[in-house]
Write a protein that binds this DNA or RNA. Structure first.
Length: 258
DNA sequence: ATGGTAGCGCTGCTA
């Protein structure tokens, strides 16, 4: 079973590239973020024509998350589960079970800056994500949390850590909250296969950062032990960041043994 | 040189 995540940065603009990529890579499950669509504008029929069932949780203009699956979709929960606390006013997560794996597609708040209210929102959001996982699932089952975490787990995931002192994406508080998710029972499936640095998934559009190799690894695939034991291979598909009108994120792919 | 681009939607916000 091939699982992938991709922050597409507007599905309206990116749909042709997403269709092309699905045909080439043929993931069984694709979790998307930043669709920037309302639910009634989500192109479910287009994906159906490519063999994918889909669920979408959107608001239009900003945010928006989706799951596509060739291996079935049930137990759908849009937004945070009620038992985890108040719903998120933004459309930032959706959960569904696909092919026996409970999958959550997440678009973690950016945080903007450490002194911004949005950063406190990011920290609260990450704490609620753990309660959400307890509400919808368990570390003892096959479960994946994947998407744009807006956190670089380690300095090797940052092109120049000296440029990210007292910054979002690297601050100790958000890394600690990511570590709490790992303590809950999740591990970074990409890091199971690679130890080296400079394996980024996002590059700022500005200043030619992609071509200069200035990126961050912030798109993660986390899985419980039952999933990690099956994780045979992973890549960041940097080719999808090239050419005309790319997203600023590349897809991350993980293959699970059946 | 503290810059730069992209998307949304129409002025400035978000990333």
């Amino acid at each position: 079973m091939r699982i992938a995540t991709w922050n597409v940065n507007s599905l309206k603009v990116r749909l042709p590239r997403v269709e092309e990529w699905l045909a080439e890579v043929q993931p069984d499950v694709l979790c998307m973020q930043e669709t920037k669509l309302a639910d009634d504008a989500f192109p479910a029929l287009t994906f159906q024509g490519l063999g994918y069932e889909s669920v979408h949780h959107g608001q239009g203009q900003w945010n928006g998350v989706a799951i596509l699956s060739k291996v079935g979709i049930d137990d759908v929960v849009a937004n945070f589960a009620p038992a985890s606390g108040e719903p998120d006013p933004d459309a930032r997560l959706i959960t569904a079970r696909c092919g026996g794996v409970r999958c959550t597609s997440v678009y973690v708040p950016n945080g903007r800056s450490l002194d911004n209210d949005h950063y406190q929102y990011k920290l609260r959001w990450l704490a609620q994500l753990k309660r959400h996982l307890d509400a919808v699932g368990s570390p003892d089952e096959p479960l994946v949390v994947t998407g744009d975490f807006n956190i670089a787990p380690d300095d090797r995931d940052v092109y120049d850590p000296s440029k990210f002192v007292d910054a979002t994406h690297t601050s100790q508080a958000e890394r600690d909250l990511l570590a709490e998710l790992e303590a809950w029972g999740l591990s970074d499936l990409f890091r199971q296969h690679y130890e080296q640095d400079r394996l980024y998934s996002w590059w700022d559009y500005r200043a030619g950062d992609f071509h200069q190799g200035r990126g961050l690894r912030i798109d993660l695939v986390l899985g419980t032990r039952a999933v990690a034991e099956r994780a045979a291979w992973s890549i960041v598909d940097r080719n999808a960041r090239k050419g005309t009108s790319p997203s600023d994120h590349a897809p991350v792919v993980v293959d699970l043994l059946d």
